[in-house]
């Protein structure tokens, strides 16, 4: 099963992953048009600086995901085919239980649509947008068995 990995030492905090993520989740998928979309396309990965290091934080698609156990509507679920924690936004009732329990702070409220917003690991792309957009290859995707 493929996963996204981070080589922290390579992250320079350019936030290109954030832009790529927001763009791939926009209507137009064109950066010049996407900036005019309302609600504004949102990124699911956020680069944060702590001390001298940058951390691109996103959903880790936990094996034992607290958000799934906390979800009262069945929106948050394990997609067994691809091994991701997926949110069926049509079923999301905006209770924010997932926001309350995610230890990584990786689920946020989409200000415009008011649904739980999280990494979907780009199911329709060959390669997740954040990985594709990372100019230093700090983000990469690989089989878990090869890395951990």
């Amino acid at each position: 099963m493929k996963e996204i990995f981070v080589r922290l030492a390579r992250c320079v905090g350019c936030r290109q992953c954030e832009i790529s993520c927001a763009l791939v989740h926009s209507e137009s998928r064109d950066i010049h048009q996407a900036v005019w979309e309302r609600p504004l396309p949102r990124q699911r990965v956020r680069v944060t600086r702590e001390g001298s290091e940058y951390y691109p934080l996103r959903c880790f698609h936990c094996e034992d995901a607290p958000c799934i156990g906390a979800c009262i509507s069945g929106a948050m679920h394990l997609d067994e085919d691809v091994g991701t924690v997926a949110c069926d936004t049509a079923r999301c009732v905006r209770c924010w239980m997932c926001v309350m329990v995610c230890p990584y702070g990786s689920i946020r409220i989409h200000e415009g649509q008011k649904v739980a917003l999280k990494c979907d690991r780009c199911p329709d792309e060959d390669e997740p947008a954040c990985v594709r957009g990372c100019p230093t290859r700090a983000l990469l995707v690989n089989e878990r068995a090869l890395v951990v």
Partner: peptide
């Protein structure tokens, strides 16, 4: 959180190592 947190079960711990060590 990682050192003392009992929140994380096995899956969670691996997730953390993954971001900390950053693969190969």
């Amino acid at each position: 959180i990682d050192e003392k947190g009992r929140y994380f079960q096995e899956g969670g711990k691996r997730n953390v190592q993954r971001i900390m060590q950053g693969g190969y």
